[in-house]
Amino acid sequence: MELLVASAIGAMTAGGVYLLLRLRTFPVILGLALLSYAVNVFLFSSGRLAIDMSPILSKYGEASYTDPLPQALVLTAIVISFGMTAVLVMISLGAYLEADSDEIDIDQADLDEDAAK
């Protein structure tokens, strides 16, 4: 089980990083989404895996529970990463509409022009 989760984290990280390094905005956003999945699951896994031990206190006496703290952290992380993705989407949309290009790198020619100024 642990191996599956770890390999899934690894695969999503690799895919996320690869897409992050693409040259257009949309793949980069997808890459970021993929990477945030990986990070969320990674954080979650730092509480160790447990089955049928939800951190809901039992009414019927003693029971063992999984670690709730990473879950709380990941919960807000999921929501925040949505917010950040949305901001990024809006910025890339704006950039595309303003410049008619969704390339993320600035042309070397533009840079030289700036430097000359």
Partner: peptide, 19 residues
Amino acid sequence: GIIAVAAGAGVGGLAFAFM
């Protein structure tokens, strides 16, 4: 791809060791 695989292997390995 090499960068991505290195990053993925690192993170995955770390998670596996951790768990």
